[in-house]
Write a protein that binds this DNA or RNA. Structure first.
Lengths: 235, 235
DNA sequence: CCTGTTGTATTCGTCGGACCAATTGCCGCG
DNA sequence: CGCGGCAATTGGTCCGACGAATACAACAGG
């Protein structure tokens, strides 16, 4: 397994450009964008490519495009924030105060204990092996300075736990917030190293899941997220 | 209803066709689809339109299309199930046994109490007024036989609660599952009428939120979802 | 026989132009 | 002043073309 797409197509890049602009608040909701021909010219792409980009944005409910009325930016409530891309773009234009982080932590505090409980309850041996494997990799990186790698394996572990719950909604939610969570973890990690405590928390959850102890799995995961929250507060 | 909402664009319709086919399991994950030219011919659309449809599906992580390798169906874990469209499509191919309902209830049991608690904690007077208004409309429909209307106002109430939490993730999650939830509610409603009990549950939550009593709001919402679960089990 | 190199065909990515349909908004008529 | 019809605008779709990258096969060398 390796990496994601290093190369982005032109249509995808234009979607990103317009998407980030919208997320950054440059195009107020309800405001009409320029017509396709003009926009294509401005962004220096063909109308075809521009339309493909629009289809992406429309499929995320960021904009609505109707014949003869042009493309309008939808109100914030409408666009689906859980889309990984949308979530991704919103971090780039993330203004500091960022209730986003607080909301992320609240959501994690809700989702992750449920996922841990589900994993303990419904996880197959293979699922549990994957979780343990992820944890062992985490452990092996304990003394490493490779922050991105540490974050990656941390994320792997969380995703493995969610997957083991066999609840597609929880899995998808974790997958969605993974990127934002990754940035958050990176922020925490390169700040200072209470990595041992973090590792120990992960180990407790791992063992509880392996033992199919749903209550303990939930409880330990609650602690883990609470720890993350207090770590965050300290910055 | 017999239907005909066919003023949707052709590209969108194509996306729906392929999307539902994938969700129905006709195209096993990892399997390559036909090349663009062939697929376009099969579906009787131009390659341009087909590509726009593909952009939609790719943006939902249902498929991945790379140059020279063609389009392949991504593994189930990858595609974002919370996308309203994807969620919608998965219900069409939903066979009754389906764990989808069970997973939905599990997710609701996690999300909704948190939303209620958040609403009690962070809800503004306007938010609370909206929740109460929604509940009163629900009440006014108590003796009505207009199932769709009852479902609609029920959904309104739940969405109002989520909105009041001011957590964009919870809001978006509720918005995403609203459609499936609606179908579920319709199923429950036209089965039999314990609408009074349901209404009472909603009232308790509403009042707790109005009183900014987070603990009670959470507890009553837990009961509400549990009631929905037991009602479901009985069918 | 196996391995590394080269060449070619295939397939997606992008482009520009063209036409169609429908809706909007104007304009003239009653 | 209101109403109905006409025309312009704009998105929706199609077509044909070219380019670039690469998977695959043919080939040469060990």
């Amino acid at each position: 397994m390796g990496s994601e797409d290093n190369w982005t197509s032109r249509s995808h890049r234009t979607a990103v450009r317009i998407g980030t602009a919208i997320l950054a608040g440059e195009h107020p909701p309800g405001a009409p964008l320029h017509k396709e021909a003009d926009l294509a010219a401005e962004l220096d792409v063909s109308r075809n490519t521009l339309r493909e980009a629009m289809k992406i944005l429309a499929s995320k409910s960021l904009v609505e495009v109707s014949p003869r009325r042009g493309t309008t930016v939808l109100p914030r409530e409408r666009w689906n924030v859980l889309d990984p891309d949308v979530l991704d773009w919103s971090t780039t234009g993330l203004r500091d105060g960022s209730d986003l982080l607080e909301e992320l932590l609240d959501t994690r505090a809700v989702i992750e204990p449920a996922a841990a409980e589900g994993a303990a309850r419904h996880g197959t041996p293979a699922d549990k092996a994957r979780i343990r494997a992820a944890w062992e990799v985490m452990q092996s990186y304990a003394d490493s300075d490779d922050i991105p790698a540490k974050v990656a394996v941390d994320l792997d572990w969380h995703i493995a736990v969610a997957s083991a719950s066999h609840n597609r909604f929880l899995v998808s939610i974790m997958g969605s917030i993974a990127h934002v969570l990754g940035e958050h973890l990176r922020h925490l990690n390169d700040r200072e190293g209470n990595y041992e405590g973090n590792l120990a928390n992960h180990r407790r959850v791992t063992e509880a899941i392996e033992a199919s102890d749903a209550a303990t799995a939930r409880a330990t995961m609650v602690l883990l997220v609470a720890q993350a929250r207090s770590d965050t507060r300290r910055l």
